[in-house]
Design a protein around this nucleic acid. Structure first.
Ligand SMILES: [Mn+2]
Ligand SMILES: [Mn+2]
Ligand SMILES: [Zn+2]
Ligand SMILES: [Zn+2]
Lengths: 154, 154
DNA sequence: TCTCAAATAAGAATTTTTCTTATCTGGATA
DNA sequence: TATCCAGATAAGAAAAATTCTTATTTGAGA
């Protein structure tokens, strides 16, 4: 997902079903570069403005929503106000830090597998499950440092 | 959680650490009555207004946030704009219906247990986990009807 | 009953999101 | 390569959501 060049970005946008315009390319590029940060439309706009002084905030909002629609990106759940976006469409979970209000990616293949198996065994009446996600809420002990979650060595 | 009288509501508010004012009681009461609906501040306000014509929207916003602060209620994660609130502070998950935009309670003791066990075995560096929740996203097949998730009979 | 820290109402202000419309452009076609 | 046009964009207005300010009121303890 990292280090995509303009042509790769362009291709992904087209494959998703949208015209690859200059604005869409730079919006998508910004979101990919913000990997793991889950920015708002406003934040994406601020990132883009220096190199793209003529892009408009409305376009950023509209573009991100189009991307969600075509499943090129996804919206991330949030307790705070403001929609947040994620270029990572792979199944992964999120950690929400009550201290810093950060939303941090948490990829755990074992966890995904555990839940996939669990829901496979559930009978869903009147509901077609598209996806699931786990949200961990808690606090970073040291706000500056990274979180690391690993298997307990047995 | 259902059918609390005013004194029970008052007591819960006080226990959580807040003064039990008239406004706080009716806001909390409305949220308890909306069990499973996850209303916004605006929605709570509209519910209250007929019987409490002098309550102000700002008070509802502020009151709900105070309740979240003291853990009397919690904010529910959402992909849409607008903060949503839940009087149910027990561990439970939510189903998000892309069709109807509803957020529906999903209580599954087995699922909670599975995840509790899972996270107990995880080593968390620089993170103190407070809670976790699962979010199922998908579509109701028949919008009018209820969703029912049960164990597959073996 | 008196007192006052805390809470509220009212409305302004700010922030977030959507909408409207005139203009522009990517890419298909000739 | 020049022409065309459906769909995309910029700009700004509008609407919706949230927070803030301040004068007034109130819950609950003394
Ligand atoms: Mn990521
Ligand atoms: Mn509930
Ligand atoms: Zn993510
Ligand atoms: Zn709930």
């Amino acid at each position: 997902m990292q280090l995509l060049n303009r042509n790769e970005l362009r291709e992904r946008i087209v494959i998703s079903g949208l015209k690859a315009t200059q604005q869409r390319i730079v919006v998508y590029e910004a979101l990919v570069q913000q990997h793991g940060h889950h920015p708002t439309a406003e934040e994406v706009y601020q990132l883009l403005k220096p190199a793209n002084p003529s892009i408009s905030l409305g376009t950023v909002y509209k573009t991100l929503d189009s991307f969600v629609e075509t499943n090129l990106i996804r919206r991330v759940l949030s307790e705070e106000s403001g929609k947040r976006y994620d270029a990572n469409t792979m199944a992964h979970s999120h950690i929400y830090c009550s201290n810093t209000k950060e939303i941090i990616d948490y990829e755990d293949a074992e966890l995904e597998q555990l839940l996939t198996d669990f829901f496979r065994k559930r009978n869903m009446e009147n509901f077609e499950i598209k996806s699931f996600a786990v949200q961990l809420t808690g606090n970073k002990k040291e706000p500056g440092k990274q979180i690391r979650i690993s298997q307990v060595p047995k």
